[in-house]
Structures are given as structure tokens and as C-alpha cells.
Simulated scan of single mutants.
Amino acid sequence: MTTKGRRVSRREQHRIGGTGASVTVRNTLIAYAFMLPFLILLVVYHTWPVIFGSYLAFTKYNIISPPQWVGLANFRELFADEQFWSGLRNSLKYVLVVPVIQVISILVALLVNRPLRGIGFFRTAYYVPVVTSFAVVGLIWSWLYKQGGAVNSVLMGLGLMRGDHSLLDNPATALFAVMFVTLWKGIGYYMVLYLAGLQGISRELEEAATIDGATRSQVFWNITLPGLRPTILVCSLLSTISAIKVFEELYVMTPNGYPAGSTYSALMYSFSKAFGGDFNFGLAAAASMVVAVVSILFGLINFRLTKGGRSDA
């Protein structure tokens, strides 16, 4: 015996549908109310500075007088300044740290992903440099790099250095010395991201491949690495953008591009034009805009190399 449900009239269906719609609208408003504080901070400290900075790139502005529209004059002055091109070249050199830090971070993530005793301690130890202020890190490594420091003693003991001199005082090695500090400090950060990516890969796939006779290297290249492709895209994008807009590391360890401008970066040029006495905020904004465009171009290259982060590509 079957029973038929009560037929609902169109008027009642309309009433029920209207109630459901009102509940959906109310829930949406509640969600946006929770997000409102963050959205306000995002607009005030991110969106508005980007818009206003882009506008300043086409003006002459020194804080005291109102901005005056000058069109492309700042960019013409910028592209004619050899100091800016020197800084941009050093910023692009800094991108060399990106593939190195990604490879080492993946290897470290594979290492700490093993169920070993005390592995939590090693994960924490690798991450400690990430949460340490770069002012502190810069001072410590400047001391290690100085003449007669620990780094020189090790390099001379290994026969890799002739003569006791600071790596930060040599124009040929200063930039690479700072790059190594960036590498050392950033490994822990990317390690955590890759560790999360590794734990998101199906263990069943790896075990099935092993049962079918695949070697450990074959499992890594055919299962683990493709599964990490979305994480590789994110990490390479973050690392590339950080490398191109490098400033803090160089400013702390090698102020004003010391020695002989060998560590002078594009953002250091922007900072000096804005706050170094010229107060030419229009030219500084133009330099920052060029750095942003270069970062976007390298981001597109990362998308191409990682096949858009698709794990099934």
C-alpha cells in the first residue's frame, strides 16, 4: 500500500521558495559581515596604495605640493638612468636563487615527511629561520661573513677561498653571499608548503606503483612530482616575486648597494628616490611599476613551465 504525499499548492510553493531565498540572502550578508573587517584592511592597505601608486607613476610629486600630471616623463627619465638598469639587473640575478631553493625545499620536505622518531623537532628546526626577523638574521650572517669569521675559516679550510677577506666586501661575491642567506632563511617556509602537498598525494597510488615494480625514483618522477605540480607553481611564484622585489636583505647586509653598487636592486633604487633626499615619489612609483610588470612576466613564465599547476598535465 502506498501513500501519496500531500500536494502543495503553487501559492505555498512560492511562499516556501521565498523563505528559502531570504534565508540564503541573510546567510550571504552574515558571511560578508564577518569578512568586512578584513576587506576594509585589504582596501586600505593594499588596493588603494596600488591604485594611488599607479597614478603617482605618471605625476611629479614630492609630498609638499600636490601631484602634477607629467605623463610618461618619469618613465623616460627612468629608462635613461643607468643606475636603475644596474639595479634591475641585480634583481634579475637574484632570481637564480629560485630553482635552488625549490629543489632543496622539496628534498627537505621528502626527508621530514618520513615517520621517524623526533621528526617534529627537525621540522621545527628547519622552520625557525622563517620566523626570525631579517634584521637579526642579517646581523648574524654579517658577523659570520666578516674577515676572520666562521664562514671564511670553513671556506679556507676546504680550500675554496684564498686569503681572509669578507665576502660582503667583494663586489664579485657580495650579491651571492646575500642570496645564500635568503636561501637559508626561506627553505623552511617552502618546506612546509611542500610537506602539505606531499601529504595530499594519495598513498595508494605510490604503494600500487611500488607493488607493480616501480623503483623509488620512478615513483617520484611519475607520481610524486606531478602531484606536487600545483604546489610547485605556488612556491615558484612566491619565490620569484620575492626575488625580483628583494630589498630588506640587501638593505640590512649591504646598505646602499655596497660594495660598489654590486648589490643595488631595483626596489632599492625606488626607495632611494622616494626617501633618500630627492622625495621624487613619481619616479619611485614608476620604478616600482616596472618591477611589478617584470614580476608579472616571470609569473607567466612560471605558469608555462609548470603547465598551469595541473597535476594531470
Rank of each mutant, 00 (worst) to 15 (best):
K146Y: 02
F79S: 03
L92E: 00
G157D: 15
F34Y: 15
L92M: 09
R7S: 15
F298V: 11
A73N: 11
G148W: 07
I201P: 03
L193W: 05
Y145E: 08
G186K: 07
F180L: 06
Y194C: 02
H46G: 08
L237R: 00
I51E: 03
V112A: 07
S91W: 00
S153T: 15
G261N: 12
W184G: 00
M191Y: 10
A214S: 13
N74T: 04
T263L: 03
L29K: 13
L158Q: 05
S265E: 08
L238H: 06
Y94T: 06
L107K: 01
T24I: 10
L193E: 06
Y32H: 14
L111C: 07
R117H: 08
M268A: 10
P230K: 01
Y55L: 10
V151A: 02
Y127V: 14
K307Q: 09
I241A: 03
R117I: 07
A31S: 12
F247P: 00
W69P: 12
L36Y: 14
L160A: 10
I63V: 14
E12C: 09
I64N: 13
R89T: 12
L183V: 00
A177I: 00
S288N: 03
V178I: 15
I140P: 14
V151M: 02
A73G: 02
F247K: 08
L139M: 12
S265N: 11
A21I: 14
T224P: 08
Q199N: 04
N113K: 03
